[in-house]
Design a protein around this nucleic acid. Structure first.
Lengths: 205, 205
DNA sequence: CCAGATTTGTAGTGCTCGCTACAAATGTGG
DNA sequence: CCACATTTGTAGCGAGCACTACAAATCTGG
């Protein structure tokens, strides 16, 4: 009993190529032909390795989340809610216009305009976006406990707000907005959080 | 020489039905079968009346813009930049969760995740979104001239910001967010504009 | 009531989609 | 060198897509 012919491609490398196609064209906009071209393999190899187009997307999403994990921890590690928001939004402005990736965010670009057929892809993407919002909410709750945010502040609302701004920036980026435009949005958006911050840590102002 | 068999459907009514389908499923997600079903006509009638799927979308977009014209004038007629922003965002929160329409905004929901093929639909939608941003920019420039916005304020950046928040809210709405969630976002977002407003008109604060 | 003009419904067109059957190719264990 | 297991490339499956050819139906002008 043998082990079989060995695979001629690297799974993770192929997944990166697939991620880029989904990122640029969306889930329904990406065709198997585009995916196999980018991955450098043929359809049977794709289906043997990943199962289906939807399963391939989920694998790509997992990899996308993994890639951003370190950055997210750096963002959430900022000392104040204001600084968390600033790092988050300025970082998003930078990442969403990084020429080494498609513009915008995979979790937004990949899922809209999906036919409401049997596919649950839009729901899947919304759930993954909600994860980021939840992380922000927890961080803002901590900020409120630490007295960094005003007692009247609503951590859930603030997290929703930051999440909404990120999503809006993503759509702008995928429509061709440049880094300066996104940075302008980020700078204005941060002011809404400053407004609910306790100014104590900033001396003499 | 006769005039021909009369049309059995109303063009504008059919256009409203088509708009709803595009709104709910996006441009590429909407099929001709769905459109003709909703419009109550057969494909040849659709093509005779509108020319093509893309032309039908553009006609629906024109009608969408027309529908919102009166509301936009009411928003832009508010006395201050802060009030313009408040009416805009609170109105968007309400309209995007109005159960008599699909959730979100047609100009966002209709155009993302379109394959970058020969179709210029995403570009068309981005241009229409930019129109709203431009209207806001002009209004904020006026506000600055009138001393309502601080001299340091950047009307273009503020308009971009409000436009980004609206877009983010639209994606949230189409992912199932309810009116309360959108209102929370709007309330926080407005604070960023207040921050750059001259407080003079608000006495004793 | 007939001739010309237009719309209507039926029934497709060619094309592309996600996906797969199949056999040749390439590996390992004995 | 031979079974056996797995992958590879080719070639094509049924389904659904945007779109249309065609003839019957329905109007007006004379």
């Amino acid at each position: 009993m043998g082990i079989g012919r060995p695979r001629t491609f690297d799974r993770d490398t192929a997944l990166d190529q697939a991620m880029e196609v989904f990122w640029r064209h969306g889930y329904e906009g990406a065709t198997i032909a585009q995916l196999t071209d980018a991955m450098g393999i043929n359809p049977p190899s794709l289906y043997a390795a990943f199962g289906s187009k939807e399963a391939l997307l989920k694998a790509a999403l997992d990899r996308y989340t993994l890639r951003r994990e370190a950055w997210m921890e750096e963002v959430l590690g900022a000392p104040t809610a204001r600084e968390v928001t600033a790092r988050m939004l300025m970082g998003v402005a930078e990442k969403q216009t990084d020429p080494s990736n498609p513009p915008g965010c995979l979790l937004v670009q990949g899922g809209l305009a999906c036919g409401s057929g049997s596919s649950n892809v839009p729901f899947e993407l919304a759930a993954r976006r909600a994860q980021t919002e939840e992380q922000l909410r927890h961080r803002f709750e901590r900020a409120k406990d630490e007295g960094d945010l005003a007692p009247s502040a609503d951590p859930a609302a603030l997290a929703r707000y930051v999440s909404a701004v990120i999503t809006g920036m993503s759509v702008m980026a995928s429509s061709g907005a440049d880094r300066e435009a996104l940075t302008q949005v980020a700078v204005v958006a941060i002011k809404a959080i400053e407004d609910q911050s306790v100014r104590a840590p900033v001396p003499a102002n």
